[in-house]
Design a protein around this nucleic acid. Sequence first.
DNA 1: TCAGTTGTTTATAT
DNA 2: AATATAAACAACTG
Length: 256
Amino acid sequence: MPELPDVERYRRFLARHAVGRPISSVRVTDRGILRNTTPQALGRALRGRRFEDPDRQGKWLVAWTDGPALLFHFGMTGDLIWGAGPEGRHRHDRVILEMEGGELRYRNMRKLGGLWLAHDADEAGAVLGSLGPDALEVGRREFRDRLGRRRGRIKPALMDQRLLAGVGNLVADETLWRARIDPSRSIERLTDTEHDRLYDELRAVLRTWIGEGGEPRGSLLAERAGPDPRCPRCGAALLRAQVGGRTTYRCPTCQR
DNA sequence: TCAGTTGTTTATAT
DNA sequence: AATATAAACAACTG
């Protein structure tokens, strides 16, 4: 589930439900999900604090409070849930933040990703490491420049979080399909037109995906899960292959 | 039983 | 130096 658009929705979700409410207690049902702190330290750090407007960079959600910040990464199966009370809790709710008027739950089945605690902006920056500019914020020029300094195949470059933050496997496939570019094309051989299409389609994919509150229809994405994946544009059977170690779908006639 | 899964990090090879 | 590949992490589904 979580790619950049999903994390952006989590960001808005946290802002809508949790901002401003005093945190009364922190329940950790799986301490392994805390990557740089303990349940005790997390409780001490957050109790009595209130979330402020959260930030997102790539697939990271940075939830500032009037004290420290809580950093969320959702891995492949993370989710954020709001509950008015304890009913509806799930066994994969690894951390539950109880606050006035409800509770925020960090759910994560596979436990890739996790929660980090940062006491200030410097610490938050250290956790995020050398993350590139956010894929939705980056300008056309910088996108082009950063890509131009890379060699090799286009898809793994798009997914490199140091180059550009937020593009995952599904967004990459969708973008390349819409831009009609083969995921294995070498970056050096992309034309100016293709660079422009890539930038435009990346933004279009991210924006529609955020806007629809879920994965878009009439897309490669909708096809790949089905029994007979076909190109929504030309009807050709989609090809499935490994690119950069990830399952990749492409259209044999539209993408060259 | 086996293959597959939206992400990232690490080690190893080229 | 940078890119490519595979494995590991972990838990579940079909």
